[in-house]
């Protein structure tokens, strides 16, 4: 009951934040006209919120700066994501702020519930790893949407500072730290003539299962480069489908890790809300193999 109440509070908190963000936008309005300092980007060109809270796809950050604020504007989003695989589930919520289509700040909290596996490992049924992520991203150059006569993509660099609350258990399973920072560089381009968006991301990380199982391990405790890629086809102004791929390190002897994949559908009826549904394949997680299931995410903002 204690756990459900916390999850509900997290969700309520995210929704209150979202309501606050939309009110902030409304407050910026001048008389009857829509405010001129917000929501200048075209639909779906702010990306959605990936699991660590940065703007991008579902699994991987993109070079797009989050929110609908374009140059000279600001914008914000809040999100809630739930991933259900056979033996675990993940609750994930956060918010981001975008400025001048140049800089993005984000926060996110992930709660990874081990369900019955927790009992099997002697940790207790429903044992949960909680990770907080603080993210920052800077667009270096390029415009994914407007530079249609050039091969030059939009390129951004970012960092995600992660802290996990289960330090004792993490050390027991071989992780070298309960906190760490991922660094990444992303190149994103929308090929309008083909209605196709493509992203390639290179992430330097020590995180085990994105940090849920700590950072570094007995097998390896060095930063490694992991590749992440996305492709999204725009079906219409409001609908996109796509797929993602995310490589993972294998730092822990006790818990083999696999690459993550997903195939998604994203719907944005307007600039204030988007819904993403995906089939996610997360491979082996600790003692359970072939984890796959549903990824569902909602993002609100302006």
């Amino acid at each position: 009951m204690h756990k459900f109440r916390r999850q509900k509070m997290l969700l309520v908190g995210a929704l209150v934040l979202a309501g606050g963000l939309v009110s902030l936008q409304a407050a910026a309005a001048d008389g009857g006209d829509p405010p001129e300092n917000v929501s200048g980007k075209l639909l779906l060109t702010g990306g959605v919120s990936q699991i660590e809270g940065s703007a991008g796809g579902g699994l991987t950050p993109w070079a797009l700066i989050g929110s609908y604020g374009t140059q000279g504007q600001f914008g914000a989003n809040a999100f809630y994501t739930r991933v259900n695989v056979q033996d675990y589930h993940l609750d994930d919520a956060g918010a981001m702020f975008g400025i001048d289509n140049r800089v993005e700040f984000s926060v996110a909290q992930q709660r990874f519930d081990t369900q019955d596996v927790g009992a099997a490992l002697g940790l207790g049924r429903g044992f949960t790893f909680t990770q907080n992520v603080i993210g920052v991203k800077v667009r270096l150059f390029g415009d994914a949407v407007l530079d249609q006569d050039s091969w030059v993509p939009q390129v951004s660099v970012g960092a995600q500072y992660k802290t996990n609350n289960q330090g004792t258990i993490l050390h027991a399973i071989g992780a070298k730290s309960d906190r760490g920072t991922d660094y990444y560089i992303s190149a994103t381009k929308l090929f309008l003539s083909q209605s196709l968006l493509v992203d390639a991301t290179l992430r330097y990380t020590k995180a085990n299962q994105i940090g849920i199982l700590g950072f570094g391990g007995d097998k390896n405790n060095n930063y490694q480069a992991e590749f992440e890629g996305s492709a999204a086809y725009l079906l219409s102004q409001n609908w996109a489908i796509g797929a993602e791929y995310r490589q993972k390190p294998n730092n822990l002897g006790i818990a083999k890790e696999d690459s993550w994949y997903d195939a998604f559908v994203a719907w944005a009826p307007n600039k204030h809300v988007s819904l993403t549904l995906a089939y996610a394949d997360l491979g082996n997680i600790v003692i359970k193999n072939n984890q796959h299931g549903l990824y569902a995410s909602m993002q609100v903002g302006f």
């Binding site: 949407v145 407007l146 530079d147 249609q148 006569d149 050039s150 090929f191 309008l192 003539s193 209605s195 725009l234 079906l235 219409s236 102004q237």
Partner: peptide, 14 residues
Amino acid sequence: PFRAQNKLLAKLAP
């Protein structure tokens, strides 16, 4: 059609 729209927009964007 959406794809046709995007082909035109691709020429206008630059």
